[in-house]
């Protein structure tokens, strides 16, 4: 891997040094890095002239920011109203049981992060789960277990915790 701080320097160059660009900058950092580390937040806050305390307030206020590295694959279950009526919560419960983690957490082997999202606006195909940005219409535990198996097998370093075991 190239110098891990290089991309941050490149990103900083794209944003004028003003507080209003803090959120966009943090979003871009997360896109590259998967999460926002202490050091990168410090750089972003210095660049946009926002005190670190306020940058931290921002990063913890908005749900999409992560301060810890996520798992290799992300399963997002939509909990919009249509998905709720069609069993979205049961999917969350089922996945929680299967992966032995609560929503917002990552499995110990760093394979899966389970999260919930408040409506992805795809209500016609409820319940919806999004696995690594791919939408799964009419999701069920059966379909999701299959998908989890598929993405695990595709992983470069196949990890011990076989999710379908």
């Amino acid at each position: 891997m190239a110098d891990p701080t290089q991309y941050i320097d490149d990103l900083l160059d794209q944003y004028p040094p003003k507080p209003e660009y803090l959120i966009g900058l943090l979003q871009d950092i997360q896109e590259h890095q998967g999460h926002i580390s202490y050091d990168s937040m410090l750089l972003a806050s210095e660049h946009t002239k926002v005190p670190l305390t306020q940058a931290y307030s921002v990063a913890t206020f908005y749900q999409s920011f992560r301060l810890d590295p996520p798992g290799e694959h992300e399963i997002k279950v939509c909990l919009g109203t249509a998905c709720h009526l069609n069993g979205g919560q049961q999917l969350v419960d089922g996945l929680s049981r299967k992966l032995k983690i609560e929503p917002g957490e990552t499995t110990e082997d760093m394979m899966f992060t389970l999260s919930t999202v408040n409506c992805v606006g795809a209500c016609a195909i409820a319940p919806v789960a999004v696995v690594d940005e791919k939408y799964h219409p009419g999701a069920s535990m059966r379909k999701l277990e299959k998908e989890m198996k598929k993405v695990t097998e595709l992983s470069p370093d196949k990890i011990k915790g076989e999710p379908n075991a």
Binding site: T53, S57, T60, F61
Partner: peptide, 10 residues
């Protein structure tokens, strides 16, 4: 005039 304390999370 400092900013040592944050109200965090929501």
């Amino acid at each position: 005039g400092l900013s040592a304390i944050a109200v965090v999370d929501r």
